[in-house]
Amino acid sequence: MEKITIKARGAIKGIAEGEALVCPESIQGWAGVDDHTGNIIEKGHSQEGKCINDKILILPCSKGSNGWSCHFHSAQVKGKMPAGWVFTKMDSRAGVAAVVIDVPMVADFEDVDPCEVIETGDWVKVNGNTGEVEITKKNS
């Protein structure tokens, strides 16, 4: 099994693992994630229709609307939430979502872009204590 480890800053402590859902275009804050199902409802999104539940979300940034955190929050109340997340670089919306959802998060990569290294379906372990992200490639 091919394993790759990349490292950045642990933003929310804890360890989580799951299947990667990579969104190189991020997810829009308004009408991006359904409040009740946790499905991605953004029109034309590369992962439209997929559910965020139990996934490790791999995102470059947040985008669109200051409501970014609150729709993840609603979905969490309905039992649908990511197991962890990896952000190429932190931004304010992502920071709020980090606190609200409170699952392990690693962010602020300097020499590697997780959106390029990780593919949807890879198995990813996020260590928010050390900042390490361990990737097991699905095709290895």
Partner: peptide
């Protein structure tokens, strides 16, 4: 841009992270 929740936290306590 923060978020809905963080705007409320800031309005209650009068503080936000000095960042960005």
């Amino acid at each position: 841009s923060d978020g809905i929740e963080a705007a409320a936290w800031s309005a209650i306590c009068g503080r936000t992270p000095k960042w960005g």
